[in-house]
Design a protein around this nucleic acid. Structure first.
Lengths: 170, 170
DNA sequence: AAAAGTACATGTATCATACAGATACTTAGT
DNA sequence: ACTAAGTATCTGTATGATACATGTACTTTT
């Protein structure tokens, strides 16, 4: 066995177990919580991404979310049918459409963010300030490492694909 | 709006966003990773839980995992059909069965733990030691708070139900 | 103008889950 | 002891989020 350490309570072991538990907890929240009524969690993430990217094509959004294009197509369809986003024809390329959040979409997003914030506040109520900050920075760092790992493993889908569909690119 | 803070980069806001991103990352790992061949992530968690609880009934395991009993039934069936666990009749109660990990189950679990550890080691390679420890303790604390929140919200399913099905209880 | 490539949509499959109902067993009330 | 109520498990069905394969329309290259 090349197991680095015999599953003792070392940092790696703790992270391994706690991440496992965390996934379950987060799934439970997403599934059984009262959050996510007008928009589901995947849609919320898509909207947050759309907001930070600005209007982009579905292809571009899929790359940013690291999801299959077909999955994102459906997520966008859901948003559009709820009036939270619109597909705008791209005059420079008849194949692609540009996804734009509507005002309703932004409002729904903010509202959901609020509810999530309230939940999290309740969650870390009683934590000391440094503890909260430590959680935030640890999570951010973890996501950063995860993103880098995933990116290194799949050098395909070069982020340069981005420009090809940007509104004023071609 | 009663939004506690205007979505600035405060600790709560960071946690809200980073948890959102983390779910996606963890889903991606569970779904597209090369982990989880002989047993899936849900099964692995069930096995870890079984190990820490010892032999218990499906009902009891479901409560510990905070999953529906039917879901756990299927997870157990999967483990059993892979030879990783066995259902033992409970002489004290003909309705329930006691789930016991086999040696193969334990081996599969250890092997998967190893692979997960290696991934995590790679992930936090380059982090300083305090950073790794901080991540571990932050995650543990978060899980603890999450567990407490969920428990408070559902005072049903009293953990006392546990004893009723323990091997030598009745 | 034909071939190759790209963007999006749709069909189908999978996985993990919940809820509702069925069945077999146990416990409580009388 | 008999019946009613409760409980443990299993099975059927539905949902949500995803991937992969395929189809279609458009664009770029040759």
């Amino acid at each position: 066995m090349t197991c680095p350490s015999p599953s003792g309570p070392d940092a790696i072991g703790i992270i391994e177990l706690e991440l496992l538990k965390l996934v379950r907890h987060l799934e439970t929240f997403g599934r059984r919580g009262s959050l996510y009524v007008s928009v589901d969690r995947a849609g919320y993430l898509a909207m947050r991404m759309l907001e930070s990217l600005g209007p982009v094509s579905a292809h571009c959004l899929a790359q940013a979310l690291r999801l299959d294009a077909s999955t994102v197509t459906r997520q966008i369809s859901a948003l559009v049918s709820e009036g939270l986003a619109v597909r705008k024809a791209n005059p420079a390329d008849g194949r692609s459409t540009t996804i734009v959040l509507t005002d309703e979409g932004r409002a729904a997003m903010r509202e959901l963010e609020c509810r999530r914030r309230l939940l999290i506040e309740e969650l870390v109520r009683g934590w000391d300030e440094p503890g909260q900050i430590s959680l935030g920075t640890s999570l951010a760092r973890l996501n950063d490492s995860l993103l880098r790992t995933v990116t290194e493993r799949r050098p395909a889908d070069r982020p340069a694909g981005h420009q090809a569909t940007e509104p004023g690119a071609a």
